[in-house]
Write a protein that binds this DNA or RNA. Structure first.
Lengths: 111, 111
DNA sequence: GATCGTTATATACACGAATACATAACGCCT
DNA sequence: AGGCGTTATGTATTCGTGTATATAACGATC
């Protein structure tokens, strides 16, 4: 069965840094409060998730995720208010794209 | 400088087979009448282009590109009318997506 | 039948990205 | 002081994808 897929992301000087992956990861961090658990939930290696967060915080004007190590629970990850705003906007954009897709079910190549 | 990018493609049972690459390749084949020249114009290896055309013709209900070998000019590649229709539709879709992008310059993460 | 330019096909190699693994650092708690 | 769970960081390995290279097949034209 054929279907039309669309993906959108943000690049900074040609380097991609925000897209579906980071968006989902941030949501899972928010839910779990832990980067390692969020990563394994996505079947993503911890290192990749960590590198991703570094790049995210570095390119954005304000940090999206605060990582803390040590402490009673060993540490944790906190999603900033700024990040929650971005997630909401990205989700909104994806919704609008999905609406555009539905209007485009007439492609000959889809048959 | 940050910018929003969008890409769309068609999948068949999860396998992607039509997107920006194939679309551009078909256009160049139409212009050149040759698969090898079209491929090198895109800085794409001949093998990759050939494999791509095979997959395209196999998944579509009608062939998009007819390859002929031998003959006075050594052979050549011909784009079918069906393919030209698909290219036109895909270009149209990309245009609509570009219009959607312009309305979306308000993302916080873009600042 | 020799030539020519293209398609057809297989194999070896290069490269980048992701994974796997190992180990250190941290700070609250008992 | 020791344990715990998490973050922090480097390195080696794996894996997929594309490239590079070589060679054969084809068929009209001369």
């Amino acid at each position: 069965m054929k279907e039309l897929r669309i993906k959108c992301w943000v690049e900074d000087d040609g380097e991609k840094f925000y897209g579906p992956g980071p968006n989902e990861l941030i949501k899972k961090i928010q839910k779990e409060g832990s980067l390692s658990r969020a990563a394994s939930e996505m079947n993503m290696s911890y290192k990749k998730a960590w590198d991703l967060i570094q790049r995210l915080n570095q390119h954005a004007e304000k940090p999206l995720v605060i990582l803390k190590k040590g402490g009673s629970h060993g540490g944790g990850a906190e999603v900033t208010e700024y990040a929650r705003e971005i997630v909401a906007e990205y989700d909104q954009l994806e919704k609008e794209i999905a609406r555009l897709i539905e209007k485009q079910n007439l492609l000959k190549v889809l048959k």
